[in-house]
C-alpha cells in the first residue's frame, strides 16, 4: 500500500517531467480536451444538421425524383412508340387491303374491256366472213352463168360445125336441160 501511495505521489510530482508513461492518463488535460471536444461536436452537429444534411438529402431526393420522372417519361415514350407502331401497322394493313381492292377492280375493268374488244372483234370478223362468203357466192353464181353461156355458145358452134342449123332456143333449152341434169 505504501508503494502505491509512493507511486501515486511520484506520478503526480513528475507527471510532466519524467514519466514517459501515458499522456492519456494525465488527468490534468482531460478538462481541456472534454471542453473543446464538446465545442467541436456541437459545432459539427449544428453545421451538419442545419446546412449539410438537408442539402445532401434534398439533392438525393431531387435526383431520385428526376430519375423517377425520366423513367416515367421513357415509359410514356415507349407507350407512344408502341401506339405509333400499331398505327403504322394498321395503315399498312389498310393500304394493303386498298391495293388489293384496286388490283381487283382494275382486273375486272380490264376483263370487261377485253371481253368487249373480243366481242367487237368477233362481230367484225363474222361480218367480214359473211361478206366474203357473199362475194364467193356471187363469184360462183357469175361463174355458173358464164359456164352456161359458154356451154350454149359451144353447143351452137359444135352444131354449126356439124353442118346443121339449129334453132337457138332448142340449143338453149337442151343445154339448160343437160346442165340441170
Amino acid at each position: 500500500m505504501a508503494t502505491t501511495t509512493h507511486e501515486a505521489a511520484g506520478h503526480a510530482a513528475d507527471a510532466a517531467a519524467a514519466a514517459p508513461g501515458m499522456p492519456q492518463l494525465d488527468f490534468s488535460t482531460w478538462g481541456n480536451q472534454i471542453f473543446w471536444l464538446i465545442v467541436t461536436l456541437v459545432v459539427i452537429y449544428l453545421i451538419l444538421s442545419r446546412v449539410a444534411l438537408p442539402r445532401v438529402g434534398s439533392v438525393l431526393a431531387d435526383r431520385a425524383g428526376a430519375i423517377a420522372n425520366d423513367i416515367a417519361a421513357a415509359e410514356d415514350l415507349k407507350q407512344k412508340a408502341k401506339e405509333a407502331e400499331a398505327a403504322y401497322d394498321k395503315a399498312l394493313a389498310d393500304a394493303r387491303v386498298e391495293a388489293a381492292n384496286i388490283v381487283a377492280a382494275t382486273k375486272a375493268e380490264i376483263q370487261a374491256d377485253l371481253a368487249e374488244a373480243t366481242a367487237r372483234a368477233d362481230a367484225e370478223i363474222s361480218a367480214k366472213v359473211a361478206e366474203g362468203e357473199k362475194a364467193i357466192a356471187e363469184i360462183r353464181a357469175g361463174a355458173l352463168e358464164a359456164a352456161e353461156v359458154v356451154a350454149k355458145d359451144a353447143a351452137a358452134e359444135i352444131v354449126a360445125a356439124f353442118g346443121f342449123t339449129a334453132a337457138p332456143d332448142a340449143i338453149d333449152s337442151a343445154v339448160t336441160e343437160k346442165l340441170k341434169g
Partner: peptide
C-alpha cells in the same frame, strides 16, 4: 495492462 503499467 495499461492500469498495471501506469495507474497502479
Amino acid at each position: 495492462a495499461l492500469l498495471l503499467m501506469f495507474a497502479v
